[in-house]
Amino acid sequence: MENKFPKVKLDSLDNLWLQVSGTICNIECKHCFNNSSPVNHSFELMTLQQCKPYIDEAVKVGVKEFYFTGGEPFANKELLQILEYTLQFGPATILTNGMLIKENTAQMLHEISTNSIYTLEFRISLDGYTEEMNDNIRGKGVFKKAMNGIKLLYEHGFLPIITVTKTWEELEEEKVLNGFIETLKENGYERPRIKILPSLKIGQEALRARGYDKYEYVNEEMMKDYDVSQLICSNTRLVSSKGVHVCPILINYPDAKLGDNLESSFKEYELKHQACYTCYIFGAICSNFSSVGRDA
């Protein structure tokens, strides 16, 4: 059984992800793929001192972009210092729910961004364009606080990317997208950017909707003529308080931890998980935009 899964090697470390807030989050969403919550300490917060060696090592091998995730990155009190350090070397993206961003945070983020030649990007997750729809999945009161964070970022010179996990049918897509655009504009974000993400059927989402079907695995045959750069394990690693993992999605799987430093993680990875199937089908789901498109 183990031998039939294709293996993917790291072509180049283009993206370094840092699990800066571990699995610690101020909210508890129904579809969270890594089960983050206020009480989940499976992965701990990372300090600036913990992040630095990884960032430095990544710079040496030519990393292109940095991503910060969790949990909720703003739950980490050292986040701003970590960002300031990172933005000397390259662009950074924060995946956040936006709720903890207050006026003074937004001001400091503006300063940090202005002092760098690189882009500081925010990705804020919403799961509905009405308070009712969103809070049903993400928790009571989340919508209003997230909207406030989005507005503050916009007022301080940022254009946050609103990420929406696809939980609707194809026919509804236009209606849903327009709903988001209108709501964001009404709430003071006049130039909304929206990115649709596929839902990952692991963690809480597997319990909420359904898990994967038996056949939903990647096999050798599927890799024929497939552009492997669509799979982030070919160009990405994630570091957490526990070491280096193959990608941001699989941190809860022991086999996805590849080493304690980046160099030891530069090895092949076997696509044995069903979440790999989602990544295979949708491609480049974790990046802001597939800055490297398909093979020419």
Binding site: V59, K60, G62, V63, K64, E65, F89, G90, P91, I117, Y118, T119, S291
Partner: peptide, 10 residues
């Protein structure tokens, strides 16, 4: 390769 997303070391 955009100016604000392309690191010098890269």
């Amino acid at each position: 390769l955009w100016e604000t997303t392309t690191p010098t070391h890269f």
